[in-house]
Simulated scan of single mutants.
Amino acid sequence: MPPVTQLNVELLRRLSEIDGVPGREEHVRDLVVAEIQGLVDEIREDALGNVVALKRGTAPDGERKKIMLSAHMDEIGFIVKFVDDKGYLRLQNLGGFDTRNLFARNVTVWTKDGPLPGILSPGGRPVHIATPEDRKKVPEIKEFFVDLGRSGEDVKAKVRVGDPVTLDQAFREIGDLLCGKAMDDRASVFVQIEVLRALQNAAPTHDVYAVFSTQEEVGLRGAIVAAYSVEPDIGIGLDVTLAVDTPGVGPDEAVTKMGEGVAVKLYDSTMISTRWLVDEFVALAEDKRIPYQLEILPLGGTDGAAIQRTRGGVPTLTLSLPTRYIHTIVESIHATDTQAEIDLLVAYLTK
C-alpha cells in the first residue's frame, strides 16, 4: 500500500519544540487548532482545555458510529513551588522523570511577562570536590533548583509559584530517526493531524472525534472528561511506547523495535486492549501490507485506558509509536513507524 501522505517533518519539529506542561497546554493547543482549521466539521474546547475535533462520516444517519481518537498535548515538566531569597527556584515535577537525565539542563521559566532562560541542576558539590559517596548518589527531584542568573529581588518580582518550567531541546533528524523533546506525545498529535489531513481525500465511514487531550502525564485527566462527553462507540488511544532495542537490554525486554512498524498494544498496566479490535487492526495491516508489531508494556498507560473505562465501557485499543529514550529530551521515533501508523489509521477509518 503506498503511503497516504508524506511526512511533514517541519510540523513535527514545531510540535516537538513548542512548550506545554500538564495544565498549561495553551501554546500547543493554538498550534493544533491552526493546523486543523478547514480539515474538520467542528472544533470545540472543553473545560479542561481538550481540543475535540469532529470529522463527519459518510454512512447514513442512524448507522454512523462514533470513533474517538486521543493523543495528548502535554509534556513532562515542572512548575515553580518555591523561590528562595537568593533567587533559586525549587520545583514540583509534572510527570515521571529519571533524575539521572536532568543534570545541567537548559530550561525556560514561563512567567506572566514572558519566558526566562535558566539552568537546572541538583544541589551539592561538583565532581572536582565531591566525595566518592557524592559521586554515587542519584539526587531526588526536591534537590534540583533553577538558576536564573538574577538577584533574589529580581526573581521574586518576575516569577510566581505555579509558573511552568520546561526543558529546552532543538529537534534533529538523525539518520532515519526524528529526535527531540516531547515526542511523548507530540509525535501522536502529529499523526492525528496528518490523519485528518488525509481524510480530506478519503472521507471516513463513521464520525471521527479527534481529541487532543490535556493532563495525560498526571493521570489521563483530559481524556477521561473528553470520552465522557463524546460517548464513543470505539476508542483508539494514540501514544508512544518503549523501544529498548539498544545495548544493555535483552530482546525479551525491548517491548518494540524501531523501524518494524506501528505497535498494536495488547497490554499495559492501565488497560488490556479489546481483543476483537486488535484482531481487526492486525488483519487490516496484513491485508494492506502495513508494517506492524504487537506490544506488551509492563508499566505505563495511555489515553486508551481513559476511553475504555468511560460510562458503561468502550471497546478500545491503543496504537503506539516505538520510541527510544522516553521521558528524556532526546526522545526518538522512526519515520517508517510513523508513516505506518498514519496509513493504518486512515485505512481503518475509511474501510
Rank of each mutant, 00 (worst) to 15 (best):
F145C: 03
L284F: 06
L344W: 02
R172F: 13
L299Q: 13
V21K: 03
V83R: 02
D303L: 04
R160A: 14
L116E: 07
G301P: 00
F82K: 14
R24G: 02
D74W: 10
I224M: 13
L116A: 09
V255D: 03
D343C: 02
K86F: 04
T318C: 13
S151N: 05
D30L: 09
R197W: 04
T316P: 03
I43E: 10
K158R: 15
P3G: 06
Q37G: 12
V138K: 11
K142V: 13
E153I: 03
I67K: 08
L54Q: 05
S121T: 09
D154L: 12
W276A: 05
G313S: 08
G301R: 00
I193V: 14
A306N: 01
T274D: 12
E42H: 11
L148R: 07
G114I: 08
S273M: 05
A130N: 09
H27S: 14
P298I: 03
P164V: 05
H327P: 10
I296L: 13
P60Y: 07
E45I: 14
V225R: 09
K86T: 13
M68D: 06
Q215C: 10
F212R: 04
T111Y: 07
V159Q: 07
F171T: 12
A47R: 14
M183N: 04
T350Q: 08
V83P: 03
I236H: 06
A157W: 01
Q200L: 15
S229F: 11
K81W: 03
W110K: 14
V195T: 12
G118M: 01
R125A: 15
E35S: 13
F145W: 11
R197G: 07
K288A: 13
R309H: 11
P204S: 06
M73P: 02
Q92W: 09
G77D: 07
N106D: 14
C179Y: 01
L220Y: 08
H128S: 09
R100P: 02
D245M: 08
L199C: 11
G162W: 04
E10M: 11
V165P: 04
S229W: 11
S151A: 10
Q37I: 06
G180I: 08
S269A: 12
P204D: 09
E173Y: 02
Y209K: 08
M271I: 13
F171A: 06
P126H: 12
V189Q: 04
V330L: 07
I174K: 11
